[in-house]
Simulated assay, not measured.
Amino acid sequence: MTDPAGFHGIDIGGTKIELASYDAGLREVHRERIATPGEDITAFTEAVCALVRRADAALGAEAPVGIGLPGVTDGISGRQLSSNVPALNGREVRAMLQDALARPVVTGNDCQCFALSEADGGAADGLPSMFGVILGTGAGAGYCVGGSLLRGRNGIAGEWGHWPLPATLAARYGLDLIPCPCGRTACLERYVSGPGMQGLHRHLGGDGAEPLAIAARANAGDEIARRTLEVHLDLLAHGLACVVLGLDPHAIVLGGGLSNLPHLYRDLPEALRRHLFAGAHPPPVLPPRFGDAGGVRGAALLIRQQLKDFATP
């Protein structure tokens, strides 16, 4: 299938599976969402296959499939780990679905799909490189160069949320070293994600309100909320400054629930600058163009990229 008529993108989550179909020009022609059959692998596979059959009918052709998966894929075995869809844990999901669908299938995580969507036609379209950051229930990213996703040997390029919190920052703010579900301790995502911001609010004497509520309170003059945003911004800026020093992206695009906080676009570049050496300049921090729709679009772009890469001599 070297010249497909279109592409299907699927975003799999703990509660829903969403599919969108695109023609060869990446115009959306079909979209459908169903509940995730999370416990039974047979029911899960049948649900995905039924979704794809209906999408084929809407597109008028059998199309290859890109899938955004929750959790982590073992780079050697291909097995899915730490997924919030229990039926997928320990299974070679890509191979399983490729066999069931009898067509090319590629998988990535939600952060990679988000980044690719924003690099190709999104907020960072046309830039030489970009780092697409999701700040939601966790913190992760994808790194794109020339509009294409770079995944690395293990397929985990961009997992900056599992870098460790520096001892200097932990001491500065008196932070506890919080265990992370990945098995490590004091990963940055435990402090800069949505739940991380809520934890900072509790640590500083607040009630652990939702991030949007914390921001609203800060704007209304609440000192604990203001301090929470200040500490969160400094921790986030440190992590992304390390990304700038290591990868030097031409832009950072934010996604996830915290991307709805206006102060990040206003204040994060200058906060980044304070963690860089003289002469190093922070990249622009941009809001996403596609928002929640970016996951399925990025999944479709992921299969398009793989087919293009395989077709290149």
Rank of each mutant, 00 (worst) to 15 (best):
G108W: 00
L127V: 00
G140L: 04
G108A: 15
L169V: 06
S129F: 15
M130V: 02
Q80W: 01
P179W: 02
P181W: 01
S83R: 10
I134Y: 05
C113A: 15
T107D: 01
E118G: 07
P164V: 07
G152L: 10
L135P: 04
P86T: 06
S77V: 01
L101F: 02
S148V: 08
L169D: 10
L97A: 07
C144R: 03
P128R: 11
I178S: 05
I76F: 00
A119Y: 04
E92T: 15
L165P: 00
L116N: 05
S117I: 09
M96K: 11
S148H: 14
S148P: 00
T168Q: 07
W163M: 11
L165E: 07
I178K: 13
A87G: 06
V106G: 00
A186V: 03
G161E: 01
Q98A: 13
G108C: 15
G147W: 01
L175K: 11
T107V: 14
E159K: 07
S117L: 09
R91S: 10
G78S: 12
G147R: 12
P164W: 09
L127T: 00
V85I: 10
F131E: 00
L175H: 12
L149Y: 11
L149K: 15
Y173D: 01
A123E: 01
L175I: 05
Q98T: 11
R103P: 11
T185Y: 03
A186E: 04
P166V: 05
A186G: 12
I134C: 07
A186N: 09
I156A: 12
L127S: 00
L97F: 04
A139C: 08
G78T: 12
C113I: 04
L101Q: 08
L165H: 04
F114C: 12
A171Y: 12
A123G: 02
L116V: 07
G174N: 10
Y173M: 04
P181V: 13
L135D: 04
Q98F: 06
P86F: 10
G155C: 10
N84Q: 06
A87V: 08
V93P: 02
R79E: 02
G126P: 03
S148R: 15
G142K: 11
G174L: 11
D120Q: 13
I76M: 05
A100N: 07
L169K: 06
T185E: 03
L88C: 09
P166L: 09
G136A: 08
C180H: 14
G122P: 10
G108I: 11
Q98V: 05
E118V: 12
D110C: 13
L177T: 09
L177A: 12
S82K: 15
G161S: 04
P181H: 03
I156H: 06
L88V: 07
Q98Y: 10
D176I: 12
A100I: 05
M96F: 13
R94T: 05
M130H: 02
C111R: 13
G138D: 01
C113S: 13
R172Y: 14
Y143R: 15
S117E: 03
A119K: 08
A123R: 00
D110N: 13
